[in-house]
Amino acid sequence: MSAPAPLAVTETVGKPERPRPFSSQNLARTIAGGYLPLIVATLIVVLPLLWMVLSSFKTPGEIVTTDLKVLPESVNLDNYSTAMTTVPFGRFFLNSAIVTAVGAAVKVTLAIMTAYALVFVRFPFKNVVFILILVALMVPPQVAILPNYVLIAGIGGKNTLWGIILPGLGTAFGTFLLRQHFMTLPASILEAAEIDGAGHWKRLWQIVVPVSVPSIATVALVTIVSEWNDYIWPLIITDRPEVMTLPVGLTLLQNSEGGTGSWGILMAGAVLVIVPVLVVFAMLQRYIVAGLTQGSVTG
């Protein structure tokens, strides 16, 4: 390995390991080392989604053929109208939005409160509580289907939005993540507040929460995403379109028999489920990615 001699750091333009910005050598290296992997990675993500959108405009005849054409013959919205008349997508969308908003808001609040209690409040069995939370993280949600169905259906939660939301409200993941973050907060910031006579409630919301916004954003993001995409529980607890969420509604488009050429309709349905999330994600990505990146390294 050629070790360049240690140089004094100066503003010299002609440093050997840093060629001029526009030299052809630099350009080639930038493309190979910088852009190429980026472009490849981006294409791998974008192409399947683009394919989904293109296919959603194709007629069954254009899809069920071995003679593939990349672009649809025309922007044909039949698949969308079929998808939207077969199942009430508008309603699904609204239900998903309500379930996600309410579920995520409650979960994040509970996670903040529990994590604060675990870190900043004295309690004899704190570690036991924490272990119990950690263990809860490991209970696969599918395991809970049957017992929770029996309970929720028993108290009248079948085919209701609260029946979808309630069993998921307890949050082990958010609590875990925020506890890990709160542990890293410097003690000094709370001391001052305690001297000022601020109680726990005030310290929680006026000091701990404001300095933890990135971590809380992470938890919020992960919670929102999982609520929005949750599939098996809403599938089990609903059988009326009025209360179904988007992923459940999407599977309704699949049909067991006579499904000839239904790919176009399914892709249209997938577009209706995926694109709104992508749009929101694109608008908020700066905050979301920043939150996620800052939150996770502290874990």
Binding site: L146, Y149, G154, I236, D239, P241, T251, L252, N255, S256
Partner: peptide
């Protein structure tokens, strides 16, 4: 619409049996 195919409908029917409701 209790499922997309015969298996899903059966799944829902038997879950409802377990709860004896719905």
């Amino acid at each position: 619409t209790a499922g997309a195919n015969y298996e899903e409908i059966a799944q829902k029917f038997q879950t409802a049996q377990a709860a004896n409701s719905g």
